[in-house]
Amino acid sequence: MNTNIVILDDHSILVQGLKMMLENEKGFSVVATFLNGNNIVNFMEDHKVDIILLDVTLPGKDGIELCREVKLLFPECRIIMLSNHTERSIIVKCMQNGANGYLLKNISVNDLLQSIKEVMAGNIVFCNDTKKIISKILSNQPIEPINLTKREKQIIQLLAQGKTSVNIAQELFLSPLTVDTYRKNLLQKFQVKNSTELVSMAIQKNIIED
């Protein structure tokens, strides 16, 4: 079964290069390319799209806002941000808006292909450079150890894979309410506001396996 991919970037040379590369891979179909986000929603109303490779900087509506809009309308579609922006605030905002991953454009072809496969499997993906950026939350402060139970570590690992409380509950044979309680306790332990920051902190502290 083919993975239907849309590429959305305002650099036509990059778009064409990505299109040629992906179409040479078995199981991938590039069903459309766009240089801006004006027509993507209309296209998705009539076509099945599994993954969007989305740049942050676009003419008109930027990729961060477009990510939020697409996710609200088509929650099953996976979005991988593919950008040159290295600001942590932008990366976090993209993840808060529903992105399934954030890759820098200097990523290798093999890593891009693997990232697409990982996202289709339900995981959240970051390239190594992005992991380093988002892990600098407390880079100028001593890192205090956080004592976690085995169950808490399992839940953080599953959150990093993009799984919902319902998914985690099914996998660990718990109730969704119990998983939500664990998640809220973890937010307090790590002193963060949401699951994205929790995952970022866990990467910094080497709690999540690469």
Rank of each mutant, 00 (worst) to 15 (best):
2 N>F: 09
3 T>Q: 06
7 I>D: 06
10 D>W: 05
10 D>F: 02
18 L>Q: 05
18 L>W: 00
23 E>C: 10
23 E>M: 06
29 S>V: 14
30 V>R: 00
37 G>Q: 02
41 V>N: 01
43 F>M: 09
43 F>T: 13
52 I>W: 01
53 L>I: 15
64 I>D: 01
67 C>Q: 06
68 R>D: 14
74 F>W: 07
76 E>A: 04
77 C>I: 15
78 R>C: 11
79 I>F: 05
80 I>C: 03
82 L>C: 09
87 E>L: 08
89 S>L: 07
102 Y>C: 04
103 L>A: 07
110 N>E: 15
112 L>K: 02
113 L>F: 10
119 V>Q: 05
124 I>L: 12
125 V>M: 06
132 K>S: 13
133 I>V: 12
134 I>F: 00
135 S>A: 13
138 L>P: 01
141 Q>P: 03
143 I>R: 01
146 I>C: 09
149 T>H: 10
164 T>F: 08
168 I>A: 04
168 I>C: 04
170 Q>W: 04
170 Q>M: 09
171 E>Q: 03
172 L>N: 03
175 S>T: 15
180 D>E: 14
181 T>F: 11
181 T>N: 14
183 R>D: 10
183 R>F: 13
191 Q>I: 13
194 N>D: 15
196 T>E: 03
197 E>F: 04
197 E>K: 01
200 S>Y: 02
205 K>I: 13
207 I>T: 10
